[in-house]
């Protein structure tokens, strides 16, 4: 108190007043923070919050899904020929600006025992006619890996969005509300799969939606429809007649990207090599 009095330049009375004002101010700030948080959360309802949390823990269950569907995307790496038709179709469907990619194809060239070259010229839009310049030797292995949004059950992008513009819908689609997005790009940084970008014209976050608008109309995602070899597959995991349900129920090696991140992706890969990151 003595130090405060000395530094404040007021007498003991003045110090006590300042102390009280500070306490009052802190009380006000704390009350405001608690009250504000409650007012924001109340519309969710405790039951919904609990059911949502339970769903996340289960890795994207259907308890909060009125359609009762569990959509998954499966990429069969062994069928991808690197033609880039999927990327062109996606570009056509969404009029994606040049230099930005909602989906892309990566080429992995393995030389010798463990030398890995990865490239994706123009996102694979024009295919892969030539071997990469950095790879003069004879390739021991060469394969293509299509990449897109992983539609995580526990998405980092949703967690970091400060305005609720990125969200996971009841059907399990992670979408962007362009009217709410303020373009802070936290989600772009948070996505472990680099699936997001800031749209250069709209200045809001953009990414693959698994063609939610097409699925909503009973169509397949455009990249699935365009793929000439059936390397991309999409469907309801719980539908016994769906190809994805059949594939993922077989005792084959199914992998997700970066499982250690804990995002619980809904994008699965068949035939994924250990070199893929």
């Amino acid at each position: 108190m003595a130090a405060r009095t000395a530094s404040g330049g007021n007498g003991p009375e003045g110090g006590r007043d300042a102390d009280l004002r500070r306490r009052g101010f802190l009380r006000l700030v704390l009350s405001g923070a608690v009250g504000g948080s409650l007012l924001l959360v109340i519309p969710m309802g405790a039951a919904r919050l609990l059911s949502g949390a339970q769903e996340d823990e289960e890795g994207g269950g259907t308890s909060n899904n009125p359609a009762g569907r569990r959509y998954v995307f499966v990429v069969d790496v062994t069928r991808c020929i690197g033609c880039g038709t999927c990327c062109v179709a996606d570009r056509n469907e969404f009029m994606v600006p040049d230099g930005y990619y909602r989906t892309w194809v990566e080429r992995y060239v393995i030389e010798g025992l463990d030398e890995v070259h990865v490239d994706s010229p123009q996102g694979g839009l024009n295919g892969f006619a030539q071997l990469p310049e950095a790879c003069p030797g004879v390739a021991r292995d060469l394969f293509f890996v299509p990449k897109l949004c992983n539609m995580c059950a526990r998405p980092s992008c949703v967690q970091v969005c400060p305005v609720g513009a990125t969200f996971r819908s009841r059907e399990g689609f992670v979408l962007v509300d362009a009217k709410r997005c303020v373009g802070c790009a936290y989600c772009v940084e948070a996505c472990p799969y680099s699936a997001r970008f800031l749209h250069p014209l709209h200045k809001t976050a953009s990414k693959c939606t698994w063609c939610f608008h097409r699925v909503h109309k009973g169509l397949e995602p455009v990249c699935v429809r365009a793929c000439p070899t059936g390397a991309r597959m999409f469907g309801d995991l719980d539908d016994p007649d769906s190809e994805v349900g059949r594939l993922l129920s077989r005792p084959e090696a199914v992998a997700v990207l970066k499982p250690e991140m804990g995002n619980k992706p809904s994008l699965y890969y068949l035939g994924l090599r250990r070199e893929v990151i």
Binding site: M44, R48, G52, N64, G164, A165, F167, R168, S169, R170, L175, V176, D177, A178, K179, R180
Partner: peptide, 9 residues
């Protein structure tokens, strides 16, 4: 529906 604007869907 959740912590987002339902109209966005």
């Amino acid at each position: 529906e959740g912590l987002y604007r339902p109209g966005a869907v």
